[in-house]
Design a protein around this nucleic acid. Structure first.
Length: 474
RNA sequence: GGAGGGAUGGCCGAGUGGCUUAAGGCGGUGGUCUUGAAAACCAUUGAGGCGCUCUGCGUCUCCGGGGGUUCGAAUCCCUCUCCCUCCGCCA
């Protein structure tokens, strides 16, 4: 969620940013937000003045009705004077009439006090109805306002390069050297089945397209990768978290997957639970509605979880192999920081992801996202890509984002500054360290040998029971 | 799955329709006293919105969430969530 004050104060600047993000639909919402916000504040001022009057009169009403010493003439006189004052919007006069009821003149009919009180209640009901009508109107406006705001993406960081689409992303120098093959390297979708460690057909038999089965040393290699990555990040200072893999709808809004990416997730209607498309959702929301002390920050979390994605948007893309599947595992890194440190924390997050690539001794490169490819929640983002020689492409194995206070606003996560000031929103950062399935691809393709066997990267051997080479099944 | 009991500020806990502006205690903060500390005493105390003459002042909202009744709701009604006790079923 972006700060509505920003839209209120600098609507044109916000629109410029949205144009850089290529989000023209969001641009159109800005004028509506400005108008709704103005209307909301007008109504708020009116209803609050009304409520202040009502509160004071009701308080005095309690005393008036409870006063046993009043004569019938005073009840009639007080009620009549109060009615006149309420109808004229003269609150002070009404209060005075109830506090010091003037006796009515002339003979008092025995029914007159009850009738006068009824009339007074009727006058108050009319006043209450005005409050109710305004409250209802304000509620409707706030609902419309929220609906618009939920669709406004985060503002790009000033250092994010401006560019229309992914073709303009800034590619940093390759780290490591691309291996020279003296044979034609195979793609993993040929290597895996030949080794007997990937079974695409039976995965599809069970669950349909984009599902797969890993078998034997393939399954073990996958498990080794995930466990090893988790251990590396824990050693780097991240606290290991095992979260629920299914969450309420609130959580999906809190981390800004919803409303825009509703299509992405699997949903169980009976329980109302959504399967995690990424552990980021759980990690963001575990601190929803909390206020940290500044001394608690930064917090570093890491979670190794499955991720479930419907991939509806990319139907027909990357249909071969394991690159884009409905179920995969990811080691997710997450940070809660103060605004002052989040830029530096993003860089160390990227380094934590790159450390995995380096330790695997697979060539990788850092890609700096331009505004047009930032996504919805990120203010600044780096992807890490690993080289896959068999597939002949760079695979995105990590995406590290600083969302600044965007998710924190949605999930209402704040901290109390050390100087004791009002609570401020934290900054949140997320990054894969790494997604496990694509490094799995990269290991197979980079470490393959002419005879079809695959060497196990040295760092993984302790996790593979000492196995050094995955041999083809005979 | 069945029956019952609960949810009040950072924590404990009173509060069954109006002098409640949520009592009281604990904790926190500031002060008095003290060489210093403790104790005692005094004061103070959360979040959000809006407005203004903006280091402040005013006002509204918030008693698990949402909705309702009422002139007026922490209090009454409906509904959801979560927690506890007992029973059943299962590991």
């Amino acid at each position: 969620m972006i700060d509505i004050n920003l839209i209120r104060e600098k609507p044109d600047w916000v629109k410029e940013q949205l144009v850089k993000l290529n989000d023209l639909a969001a641009v159109e919402r800005i004028d509506q937000i400005v108008a709704l916000d103005r209307r909301r504040r007008e109504l708020l001022a009116r209803v609050e003045a009304l409520k202040a009057d009502r509160n004071r009169i009701n308080k005095q009403m309690g005393r008036f009705r409870g006063a046993k010493h009043l004569s019938p003439a005073q009840i009639v006189g007080g009620a009549r004077a109060a009615i006149a004052a309420i109808q004229a919007d003269q609150t002070d006069a009404a209060l005075d009439a109830l506090a010091h009821p003037p006796a009515a003149d002339g003979d008092i009919d025995p029914d007159a006090p009850a009738e006068a009180l009824d009339a007074l209640l009727e006058a108050l009901r009319v006043q209450g109805d005005r409050v109710g009508a305004l409250d209802a109107e304000i509620r409707a406006i706030e609902q419309a306002l929220d609906e618009h705001l939920l669709w406004i993406p985060n503002m790009p960081d000033p250092t994010t390069p401006v560019g229309a689409s992914e073709e303009q992303n800034v590619i940093h120098p390759v780290q490591g050297t691309l291996r020279e093959f003296d044979f034609e390297p195979l793609p993993h979708w040929e290597l895996g089945p030949a080794l007997g460690i990937i079974d695409f057909e039976r995965g599809v038999k069970l669950s349909g397209t984009r599902f797969y089965i890993l078998k034997g040393l393939g399954s073990r290699l996958y498990r080794a990768l995930g466990t090893w990555m988790l251990d590396v990040q824990v050693a780097r200072g991240f606290t290991e978290i095992y979260p629920p893999f299914m969450v309420h709808e609130d959580a999906m809004f809190g981390s800004a997957q919803f409303p825009k990416f509703r299509d992405v997730v699997y949903f169980d209607a009976e329980s109302g639970l959504y399967m995690l498309p990424t552990a980021e959702v759980a990690l963001t929301n575990m601190h929803r509605d909390e206020i940290f002390e500044e001394a608690d920050l930064p917090l570093y979390y890491v979670a190794h979880t499955p991720c479930f994605r419907r991939e509806k948007m990319s139907a027909g893309r990357d249909v071969r192999g394991l690159k884009r599947v409905h179920q995969f595992e990811k080691v997710e890194l997450y940070k809660f920081t103060t605004p002052e440190t989040s830029n530096d924390e993003l860089m160390s997050l990227v380094e934590a992801a790159e450390a995995i690539c380096a330790a695997l001794e697979i060539p990788y490169r850092r890609v700096e996202m331009v505004t047009g490819d930032l996504g919805f929640a990120a203010s600044k983002k780096f992807d890490i890509e690993m080289w896959a020689p068999g597939s002949g492409e760079w695979l995105e194995v990590s995406s590290c984002s600083n969302t600044r206070d965007f998710q924190a606003r949605r999930a209402n996560i704040r901290y109390r500054p050390a100087d004791g000031g009002r609570p401020r929103f934290v900054h949140t950062l997320n990054g894969s360290g790494l997604a496990v399935i694509r490094p799995f691809i990269a290991v197979l393709e980079n470490y393959q040998q002419r005879d079809g066997s695959v060497v196990v990267p040295p760092v993984l051997r302790p996790y593979m029971g000492g196995v050094e080479v995955i041999e083809p099944v005979r």
